[in-house]
């Protein structure tokens, strides 16, 4: 394996220059959004965080799974024993929480805007199209409160 950092001062200086140049001036919006992310730290303390376990955009669909017509993308989140499935279509989002039970689901963006809809007794819910950028879903039923990891739906 090649030696690194390079032994020669000229080569090291060149790499340093590239590293400093690549870092460049960071656009302020990048820093701002990254710094602001911290203010979400305690908002859902105690809620189960559901990880994204399947995304049709980059995972192979499980055998037998069939996308319904008009669905652009399917995502599954798992938080403990509970799963939330989201289907993204041109007209919005339909989803289901695996613990079919009355409750509410909300989706929110990093600047705090959100949509809040009821879930029916089977755990189904639907909402309109969400804005671009990261979103996060929260579901609350009588026994269960979970929040998904942030995800880009586009």
């Amino acid at each position: 394996m090649e030696q690194w950092p390079p032994a020669g001062d000229d080569a090291l200086l060149a790499e340093l220059g590239a590293a400093l140049l690549d870092s460049g001036p960071v656009p302020e919006e990048f820093l701002d959004t990254a710094l602001a992310a911290f203010s979400w730290r305690t908002v859902d303390a105690g809620w189960t965080v559901a990880e994204l376990t399947f995304d049709s955009a980059c995972d192979l669909a499980p055998a037998g799974a069939l996308r319904s017509g008009g669905t652009d993308r399917t995502l599954t989140f798992h938080g403990g024993p509970v799963a939330m499935e989201i289907e993204v279509t041109r007209t919005g989002i339909v989803g289901q929480l695996s613990t079919g039970c009355d409750g509410r689901v909300s989706a929110r963006t990093p600047d705090g805007r959100y949509e809040d809809v009821p879930m029916d007794a089977m755990g189904y819910f639907s909402m309109g199209p969400l804005p671009p950028g990261p979103v996060q879903f929260r579901a609350r039923t009588a026994e269960y409160a979970m929040v998904t990891t942030w995800v880009l739906l586009r």
Partner: peptide
């Protein structure tokens, strides 16, 4: 843009954007 500017009551994160200035400057 801070997340608190137009957050609905109770839905946004706690308002404390103070660390942003030092670093972005």
């Amino acid at each position: 843009m801070t997340p608190t500017a137009d957050a609905p009551e109770g839905a946004g994160p706690p308002a404390d954007p103070s660390p942003a200035e030092e670093v972005s400057a």
